[in-house]
């Protein structure tokens, strides 16, 4: 159609027929695009996956210095009742010594500082620590209570994290992420 049309009609003003062709073509494009959407949308997480996005964990038996690992959104989340020594060590670190100075805490502002209080469960609950235990380098799972700072150490490529899960050296670019959570000390934590 195009060849005939362009040669024949380029001399004319656009007329009713051109409009008809255009409208039909546009309708076809709109139809095809709308049909494509369900095919794309079906790839997104389904309703049951989204609904499973929130879990509640009982932490009443979590003593000081012990860790609980749970699965949230298919990833390991570590819940640790830190010792006073660990908290103190993390507090003493200067922000300028940190490779990544941002808290990466989903419960705080995106640009909050990576102080220990911002990495913990908050004021009065400094010993409580909830973190997605996934290395920010390439997604391996770091080992707990290991490495130079007694925090986490990733065996894949040697990233070293401190007791607040902050990257200190190694290839990982960011501190490990904290999920959205709501914690009642000694009782429960709701993640997600």
């Amino acid at each position: 159609m195009s060849e005939h049309e362009t040669t024949a009609d380029s001399e004319h003003e656009p007329n009713r027929r051109d409009f008809l062709y255009l409208a039909t073509g546009m309708a076809g494009v709109v139809g095809a695009a709308s049909l494509a959407w369900p095919f794309i949308d079906q790839m997104r997480p389904d309703a049951s996956t989204l609904a499973a996005a929130s879990i509640e964990v009982d932490i009443s038996s979590l003593e000081k210095g012990s860790t609980l690992q749970v699965k949230w959104r298919g990833k390991p989340v570590t819940i640790r009742n830190r010792t006073d020594k660990e908290v103190q060590e993390a507090k003493d670190v200067q922000l300028s010594d940190l490779k990544d100075p941002v808290a990466r805490n989903a419960n705080l502002d995106a640009n909050a500082d990576a102080t220990d209080i911002n990495r913990s469960a908050g004021k009065g609950k400094e010993n409580w620590f909830v973190m997605i235990q996934v290395c920010t380098h390439l997604g391996c799972i770091p080992l707990g209570e290991q490495g130079e700072f007694g925090g986490w150490f990733c065996p894949c490529h040697g990233s070293v994290y401190d007791t607040a899960g902050r990257i200190r050296h190694g290839p990982a670019p960011y501190n490990m992420e904290l999920p959205p959570f709501d914690l009642t000390p000694g009782k429960t934590v709701r993640i997600g």
Binding site: W37, P38, F39, D41, Q42, R44, D46, A47, S48, T49
Partner: peptide, 9 residues
Amino acid sequence: RDVNYGWLL
């Protein structure tokens, strides 16, 4: 039930 537009597909 759960897949987005699954019923349609």
